[in-house]
Structure formats: C-alpha cells, structure tokens
Design a protein around this nucleic acid. Structure first.
Lengths: 352, 352
DNA sequence: CTGTTAGCGCATTCAC
DNA sequence: GTGAATGCGCTAACAG
C-alpha cells in the first residue's frame, strides 16, 4: 500500500497471503477457489477498503463494460426520457451507460464522441445535433457498434431508430385542417436537422393534399429560447396572422407559448396550438396542450435491442427501425372561430 | 494491426518507422522530437485512423482526466442546470465530466458511485438522493476529492455547496403571510431529504413567528408524480382547505398544479401557489408562477472552484458554502379573497 | 485448486 | 533527439 491512495489487487493478495491470480478470481466472482481462501481474500479486501480498478480490468480484458450515449440536449424531455430507458436496459444487461452531452453544439459533440470513444466503450448510441457529419464519421471509423437515433434518416449508413416524423406531422396538420384551419404556421428550430426537415415536409404534404399550398408557412425559429420567442412573435404580429401554430418540438413549443403569452393571445379561442412532442408540464397548462407523443419506451427498447445484436457480433446490413407517433387531441386545438374567419374573409376581399 | 479493431500506438510507430516512445511524445504533444519525424508520426496516425486509448493513458499516468458527477434526477431542471454548469467548467479546465444518474434510488446511487469510482476519476461531485448514507460512505472511503451539493447540510464531513433553504423558505412563507394567508399548506416530497427538511423548517419557522402555529400543515407527498398528485388532491378536498400552497420543489410544484387542475381551482383567485425552484415552463403558465430561484450559476461555479482547490492538493477543513435564493413574486400568489376569508370565519364560528 | 507469467496500450525514465 | 526498457492494475493462460 505504502503511499498509494488506494490499495491494489496485489495489496489484497499479500494481506490474504494468496497470489494475485487467486485474489483476482475471487473478487471477479470466478469459481475455482476454495471457500477458506476466498473468505480470506474477501476479508482482506474489506479491511483494506479495496476497490477494483475498472479501467485496468477493461484494458486487460479487452472487452469494455460500458456503452456510450451522446445526446444533444439535456433540456429536452424527450432525450432525457430516452436516456433513462437506455440506462435501465444497459444496467439490466450488465453494461454501464456513460452519458455525454453535446449541448446542441457540433464542435462539442465531436469532442464528446472522441472522449467517450477514448474510454473504450463497447458500443455507441448517438442522437446527433445539427452539422454532425464530421462527428459521425469519427464515430463510424472507430469500428464499434453504432446505433443512431431520432435525428437521422434511412439514408444513413448505420443502424437507426426513428419516429415516423413525416407521417406524424402530416396527421397533426390534417387534424388542424379538419378543424377548419387554413393559415397554419409551422414553427421549426431548423431545417438542418433531418427529423425537423421531415416534420416540415409532413406538414407541407398535408397542406398540399388539402389544396392549401398558398397558406404554407414554415418558420425556422432557431435553437435557443430567445430566438424562438422572437421568431414566433414575428409570426404573430403579421398583418394577417395564422389561426393555428404547429410547433415542431418540445423546446419550440415552449418558446411559442411564451410568445403567445406576450402577444396576449388566448388558447384556443384566439389561436390553436399543436405540439410535436409531449412533456409533463403540458398537463398543467390551461388549456391542456394537444400534442404528438413519440413512443419513448418503444424507441429506447429498440435502440437497445439493436445494440445488443451488434454487441453479440452480428453485423450485416444496417437496420432502420421506425415507430409511429400518437396524436393526442386535447384542448389547445379547436375550430376556427367564426368571427376570425369572417375577419379574414373581409381582409382578403378588401385586398382584392 | 492484424486482427485488432483499432490501431495501437505501436502500429503507428511501426508505420512511421519510429519507436513507440517517440510516437507517444508526438501524439501527446510533448516537445523534443524533430519536425520531420513528428510529421511522419502524424501522417501515419491519420492514415491508420489511430485513436489514442484514453483509459490506458490514464492508467499509466496515474492521474485521471475525468471528474465524476452523480445526480439524482434527470427530470429535475435544477439538477440538469447544475450538470450543464459543471460540464462547462470541467471542459474549460481540461477535465471530462462523467455523469451518472441515480434516478432517486439509493441502491442505484450506490451502484453508480461505484461505477464512476471504478473509472478512476480524479474527483467526485455528488448530489445525493434519499437514504444516501451508505453511498456516501462509499464515496468518502475512496480518498478522492469529494464535493457534495444541494441535498446536504453543514454537518456533513465533506465539502458542501448548498442553497440557504431555510432562509428562502422562510421568506417565501412570509410573503404568503403578508398577503393575508393563514392556512398555508407546505407540500414536500419527503422530510428524509435534508434540504427538504430545511425548507419545511423554514416554513414552520415563519409560521411560528407570525403566531400561526395552529395552521402549520406539512404534507409529505412522495417522490413520484402519482403520489404527489394524490396527496395534493387530498389536501385540497379537506373540509376547510388552505388558501395557499407552498410546493417545496420543482417536481412537487408540477404535481400540485396537476391536482389544482383536477380540483378545478383557479390560480390565484381560488388559491395561491408558491414554488420553491423556478423552471422554464413556469413562464408559460397563466398565471405566471411565483417562485424561488436558486442561483444555479453561482452554485455550479462554487462546486467547481472547490473541486479545483481539492484537485490542486489542498486539503484541510471541509468548506461549507451557502447561497441565497431569490424570491420571484409573480402572479400566482395573491391576497386572500374577502369571500374566502368570510367563509372561513363563518365555518370557524359555526364549529365553535 | 493454486501460483507464476505474460501482457492489455500507453507514458516515462534512462541510457545512448 | 531518440529508442529500449519498465511498469500502471489487472486478467487469463498456463504449469504445478
């Protein structure tokens, strides 16, 4: 022990008067050691306060015991939910999840991926952020099992698990249209994110199908609360403002709500709001927000299953799993009020 | 390289026709290598797609490059905010933050601490969960710099950083009292959490000072959304219900709001609500929630400063840093309506 | 069953 | 400047 802070396996072996090999066997739970000596080892370990050095063990064994998970935003409930799912699955299967946070910053994402890789993880799960191309190249080149989720599409040359964003968005838009809305603004953080792009496309698709091409309004709001707030305020202060807002995500919805509040518009009397992504706090709003809920459990489970398969050595064509989201019609989406419609008609007529 | 997945330092050295020692010097940025050979090494590394094995490096160097952070709940905005602060500071100082999530489960917390320790971190930062005694003992025995935050008090034999819960809670309660409230119920997850206990004590303190001893009502709601929801509903359905609710935290506030919604009570006309902990979603509620905001940045910074000091080898008496929280009076706390007061008086008279 | 030995990938002496 | 040699703490393969 001497001056070292932590006792090592050798210290334990010495104290128990056995060889390091024997001590190792005992402490790593392998069989083939007599009960008496095993007890001696346990005692010595306890007495010395021995802690096994996991990185040394992994290094020696060559088979790491942890899985890396890089997520883009800890503020986004959806990602956090996925993290919890993954963590539970990983722990259940004897793996440790080592989480890293990219904070929606491609440069940091790169750093984080490098770090996690340098920890010699057995596999990597990544929900990328915008401009992630370099980062992902980095990850792919490491030859470790890689599963990408959420912000990817099927063109990606790796295993992916996603929500059917296009379909969900189309359905959501159709719901608004069915309520009589025409001027529906689609608020999205950025079209640089594949899934955001898909959500926007789903919206556009639905609008086109309904013959509402001329009412299509996709607004790129940005990633930060301040940007989203400002953009939405812009939209709301237009001469003729939309009768419904469709926010493409968790965070965007929050920003939109803030703007709605500032503009003093009531939900759903003055304007309807549909949120892509559900979140706990939405339940306490009046009105209760209508939203699109992604099947977090299923997604988390699928990601993990894919990872397990890869871990077991199966390679081959990458799989692309997609899940359907659920439209939750609650109170924030309503029929367009007659007076608003009348006003709009009048304005349109006047302009002609 | 042969069959190994990733090229090793030796592979690079071989390819560059230098020794491993030289290659190591180049790739770890040390000086004392001629430009020509350095270039050869870099080229070889790039060509082979070399990735340095961080755990091997740490192992050899004996000086780990990461700091562990164990937090109890990813769902709680406050903890996540702290995590972001810490991560920024750590990265800035050349450390990597390795996060682990205890999920409010003491057993899991123990596991996570063990895991993080086994990764040979240079230091540990822990926000404990309920019943954390074993876990912390574990952490302390590892002889690594340890900073505990939030859910600890000054009796703890380690460095701590906390909010002045007692004072903040007292001030919040005083604010409600000043608005004419007497029946103020204090909703808390559990008194097993030191800071929750302190918050409750602050409330009790303020009530006593105002001579409202007989109105003191502390309700232990539990940690889960369902439990909190049920407990609050209970409180609200009492024969004579409180005119104000003081929720002791983020998550409790959410549960309380859900119950308020179910009970069909309007804020603040029917009842006032004060939240310990602020959160982004509170800004979109009508009314905007009055809350107590903990100084996250300052706390995060202080935790990191303490850690740096410990890392630099300074030991000695553990420090106990405390920060003042800020009372944000917004719209959810209002004067007790006259009719409610009259009703209560009448009921009280009738019962006499 | 047990102890000895040889590395995992790397950083760091120390000779040259 | 450079390379050979020595372990960090541990596991696994082997010989007794």
């Amino acid at each position: 022990m001497a001056d070292r802070l932590l006792p090592t396996l050798r210290d334990v072996a010495n104290a128990a008067e056995v060889s390091v090999g024997t001590a190792s066997k005992v402490l790593s739970g392998a069989s083939g050691v007599s009960a008496a000596r095993a007890q001696r080892v346990w005692d010595a370990a306890r007495q010395l306060g021995y802690r096994r050095n996991g990185i040394a063990a992994d290094l020696r064994r060559g088979r790491p015991s942890s899985i890396g998970f890089v997520l883009p935003d800890l503020t986004n409930q959806f990602f956090v939910d996925i993290a919890r799912e993954l963590e539970n699955h990983a722990l259940e299967h004897g793996y440790q999840l080592i989480m890293a946070h990219a904070d929606e910053d491609p440069a940091r994402e790169m750093e984080r991926i490098r770090f996690v890789m340098s920890r010699q993880v057995a596999g990597m799960i990544i929900i990328p952020c915008r401009g992630y191309e370099h980062a992902i190249k980095e990850a792919r080149e490491c030859n470790v099992p890689l599963v990408m989720a959420d912000r990817v599409d099927e063109t990606f040359p790796a295993n992916t698990v996603t929500t059917d964003s296009h379909g969900a968005s189309r359905d959501g838009t159709a719901h608004l249209i069915a309520l009589g809305h025409r001027r529906i603004a689609f608020l999205v953080n950025t079209l640089d994110l594949v899934n955001s792009k898909e959500r926007a496309d789903g919206y556009i698709d639905a609008m086109r199908r309904a013959g509402l091409d001329s009412f299509i309004q996709v607004v790129e709001c940005g990633m930060t609360a301040a940007e989203i707030h400002a953009s939405t305020l812009d939209v709301l202060s237009a001469a003729v403002r939309p009768t419904a807002l469709f926010a493409a995500g968790n965070v965007t919805t929050l920003g939109a709500l803030r703007a709605l509040r500032d503009a003093n518009l009531r939900l759903p009397e003055d304007i309807s709001l549909l949120s892509f992504d559900d979140a706990p706090w939405m339940a306490v709003l009046r009105p209760y927000l209508s939203s699109i809920r992604q099947p977090v459990e299923a997604i988390g489970h699928a990601i993990w299953q894919l990872m397990l398969k890869l871990l077991s050595g199966e390679r081959g064509e990458p799989a692309h799993l997609t899940f359907k989201a659920e439209l939750l019609v609650r109170e924030s989406t309503a029929r367009v009020p007659e007076d608003v419609l009348a006003l709009q008609r009048a304005q349109a007529a006047a302009r002609r």
